[in-house]
Every structure is written in C-alpha cells, then in structure tokens.
Amino acid sequence: MSDKPETLEELYKRKFNWVPDSLRKEMGHFNVFPLDPFVGERAQPVPYIKRDYYKIMLAIGSSQVHYADKVVDVKKQALSFSHPQIPYKWEHNRIRRGFFCIFDQHFFHNFGDLNQYEVFQPNGTHLFELTDEQVAQVTAVYERMFAEIDSDYLYKYDVLRTLVFELLHFALKMQPSSTFDKQPINASQRISTLFLELLERQFPLDDTHQRVNLRTASDFAGQLNIHVNHLNRAVKEITQKTTSQLIAERIVQESKVLLKDSSWNVSEIAYALGFTETTHFNNFFKKHMQRSPLQYRKA
C-alpha cells in the first residue's frame, strides 16, 4: 500500500488516462460513472490503497472487499461507502455491472459534515447487501445523477448533493433498529463512544512523522478529563473488554497493515505507534501475534 492516499487526479489517470479540466478549477469535485467498463472480464487489478476522496458504489454481482486485515464477502449485490481514511480493495472480476460516484470534501463545504454519518466513520458500516427491489431503487438514484450532471441546469450540483444524501440516508434506514439506540444514552455509553472516537482518530498513519500519542488508559482519561477508573468501568460495561485490550487490539491492527502494506521499516513503525524502543514493539507484537514483526511481514 502506498504511504500516500490516491488523489482524484491519480484516479482519473489510472482508470481513464485523462484528467478533466474542471478538476483543477473547481472548489469541489463530483462525477458519476457506470461500473461496467471496469468489471467482469475487463477488470484490472485494483491497488489496496487509501483515497483522498469519497466514493459510493453500487456493485451487482458477488465479490469480496478487503478492509485492513479482514475480508467481507458480497453474496449478490451491495451498496458501499468509501471514506478517505479507510483503505480498501474490491475484487471486480465477479461483479457484472453497477455505478459509482466520486467526490471530495470540498464538494460539501458549507453543505454539511459527511463524517458525522456512520457510513463514513472508521468503525461504521460501509457495506450494505441489497435485495433486487433495493437495487432498482438505488439504480434510479444513479440514473438521476447521470441526467443531472449532463444537464445545463445552473444549480445542478445542488441537486447532485441532494442525491448523494439520498443514497446515504437510504443506507442508514436499512440498518437494524438495534443499531440505533432508542433509549437515552447513559454515561457509560457516552464515555465509551468518546474513548473509541479518540482511539480511532489517531489512525490510519500515513506519514513516518506521525505518532500515536494516546497509548494508555490514563492518557485517554486525561484527554476526557475523567478519572481513569471511571473510564475503565465504563468501557468494560459497554464493550466487555478492558480499555488496555481495545488500545492494544487497535495498535496490533494498525501494525499489521503497516507491516504488510507500507515500505516503512520496523523502527519507523515502532516509533509511529508510540513505542520508545523497537524492542518494546517487537515484544508487544510477538505477544499478540506469536511471531515477530519481520516474520509476519515475510509470511
């Protein structure tokens, strides 16, 4: 995986061998495409990378999606939401058809914060299996996008933003009611949510100069301005795991991604993950993975 996220300009060069003039002129960018030329027998290998743009895709056909250290199977068809900070890769060879739209954060400047929605949050749901009826509904939204972007309407990009929100809310409404807590959120839930958001905000690591600063339960408690025992009780109550367990699991997850998909050496990875000595990182990794970082990288 490249240490730098793919830009919209690089996407256009990779997929289309051209870059629209408007990309350099517009404060925000939006475009929509059929998926057909890039799937099935015509599918080309897609790199496992981060992107600096958002993407919403309807993929019709079975497939697999690779996120960090997990693989998600799509049985028949799905709607996916890709966030700039979440690296992923689709297997396109079994997808038959579909659509995708791409846009950057400037496209929604002064029109709302997309990151407040779960589909664009690191721990949120990014993939939604669809029924045939739901595929027809989503396809209709994409067809309106194509019609709008080809029109001469002066405010067409306002309409296109509305259609993006339509896809977003279509997916959010699909989530099981249990996902949305209808009871008043108690103090433990609030504290746990804030802790997990702080933890996730430190990742992914894109640059060797970045460093994880919050490494212990005390670090997080200080940031949240609560006693560490209060934090530990709240997290254990809600997640059934200790604060230290969750921190360690997230650091292990990030270290696996960096070892497999970056060119950083082990010392650089250790530093970025907040370890004062490379040997401390080696011991930590071996404790959780039963092998050294170099053994894991070579496997």
Rank of each mutant, 00 (worst) to 15 (best):
D3G: 08
E6M: 14
T7P: 04
E10V: 05
D21M: 08
D21S: 12
S22A: 15
S22N: 13
K25S: 14
N31I: 00
F33A: 01
R42C: 03
Q44R: 15
P47S: 13
I49M: 09
K50S: 11
I56H: 01
L58P: 05
H66G: 01
D69V: 08
D69Q: 14
K76M: 00
Q77C: 09
N93T: 13
R97N: 11
F108D: 06
F111M: 11
Q116F: 09
T125N: 13
E129L: 10
L130I: 07
D132N: 15
V135F: 09
Q137D: 15
A147S: 14
E148M: 02
S151Y: 02
V159E: 05
R161A: 10
V164C: 11
M174N: 01
Q175D: 03
S177F: 11
S178C: 05
N186E: 13
N186A: 06
L194E: 09
L199N: 00
T208E: 08
L214S: 05
S218C: 07
A221N: 00
G222D: 06
Q223A: 13
Q223G: 00
K241M: 14
S255R: 02
N265V: 07
A270Q: 04
G274F: 02
T276P: 03
F284A: 06
M289S: 05
R297M: 07
K298F: 09
